[in-house]
Design a protein around this nucleic acid. Structure first.
Length: 352
DNA sequence: TAGGCCATCTGGTCCT
DNA sequence: AGGACCAGATGGCCTA
């Protein structure tokens, strides 16, 4: 509104200065009220150029209905008449309404951003690297989620599983170096190896429960020391988190599940995935694929021994109040409810 | 101290 | 008219 007002009067560059000026107070609402008051008063003096102070005072509290009248003092002498709807006089009542409206809009915007952040928090908890103490940034969370989806869809599409190096490479595409290190650390892979020895099968470790090539040592996790490194504590709570998920799956299904032939996984995805192929997943043709491992099953088939996954993954701590759709039925809840039937459904799905 | 990240405010636009 | 969504601006906080 003010921008339009100023643009009409050729004062558009002043808008931001005006906004800046009116914003240089604290963040609390009382200060905000003052700012709004000042802004609106400023709008009065700056915006309603033709409006005399006497008129405003005259307009006062009592004239709710006289908002339509104006133009009697367009002072045609100084500037030409403008087209478009005439500006309404900023009476005190209008100012009050405008202020209330602005406050309500601010509150809505805050809630909206809180909802968005809650959704991002939930997303952080389901991407392969989660730390309560060192959160991924928003942009990194989105990038990692995209890579994660891509990696999973590639696995689904091919029915093969990559080695850990390829998997981490895929996850870390386009991520910043700190995030790359974090993800690699969460996956217990020394990031230097897959960054500098791409394509090499460096440091493979085939532990008894390791489906991925693993390094025999643990990433120092310097920035996620101790309990901060959620990947270790959540190893059993996430499908693709470190080797915990491997043990999880294989302890549940074993390697010798004759029903799971990789050829059965070649069916088109349902629903079809719509992915921008910015990168390609390195295909590993190692004989390990014969284990017929299906990553997507992990999340859906979390073992019943999973320790208090609800509080870990979708605790209410991250929520700032209010009921969001994610809170009402978080993904984790879908996973845990009717777990056994879920197995059967998935088995049936992959057997058909 | 610069740069990154974030929360918040704000005005504009679109839709109901 | 009011709400949702968006983008720009701004200031605070933190870290290298």
């Amino acid at each position: 509104m003010l921008t339009r007002l100023f643009s009409e009067t050729g004062l558009i560059p002043e808008v931001q200065k005006f906004a800046t000026w009116s914003d240089d107070c604290g963040d609390d609402m009382s200060d905000k009220d003052d700012r709004d008051e000042k802004s609106l008063q400023d709008a009065q003096t700056e915006g309603s150029l033709s409006e005399s102070k006497e008129d405003q005072d005259l307009g006062g509290d009592e004239d709710e209905e006289e908002e339509e009248e104006e133009g009697t003092e367009e002072t045609e002498g100084e500037r030409p008449k403008k087209r478009g709807p005439k500006k309404r006089k900023m009476t005190k009542a209008r100012m009050e309404r405008s202020k209330v409206r602005r406050q309500k809009a601010n509150a809505r915007e805050r809630n909206r951003m809180h909802d968005l952040n809650s959704a991002l928090d939930n997303l952080r908890k389901v991407v392969p690297c989660y730390s309560k103490t060192q959160k991924l940034s928003k942009i990194e969370t989105l990038r990692l989620a995209k890579n994660y989806i891509w990696a999973l869809s590639e696995i689904l599409r091919s029915g093969k599983r990559p080695d850990l190096v390829s998997y981490v490479q895929t996850l870390c595409k386009g991520l910043s170096q700190p995030t790359t290190n974090l993800v690699a650390g969460c996956l217990q892979l020394n990031s230097r190896n897959f960054l500098t020895e791409q394509g090499q099968e460096a440091g493979r470790y085939h532990g008894p429960n390791s489906s991925f090539a693993m390094h025999p040592y643990t990433y120092p996790c310097s920035r996620l020391s101790g309990s901060q490194c959620q990947s270790s504590t959540m190893a059993n709570s996430h499908p693709l988190r470190s080797h915990g998920y491997c043990a999880t799956y294989e302890s549940l299904y074993g390697n010798a599940s004759p029903e799971y032939n990789s050829s059965e996984y070649d069916a088109p995805l349902s629903p079809p995935l719509c992915i921008n192929g910015n990168f390609s997943l390195k295909q590993d043709s190692s004989p390990d694929h014969d284990k017929n491992y299906h990553y997507s099953m992990h999340y859906s088939s979390l073992p019943s021994s999973r320790p208090s996954g609800h509080s870990l993954l979708f605790g209410s701590s991250g929520m700032r109040g209010g009921v969001h759709s994610e809170n009402l039925l978080p993904y984790d809840m879908h996973v845990h409810h009717d777990r056994a039937p879920m197995y059967e459904e998935l088995n049936a799905f992959f057997h058909n």
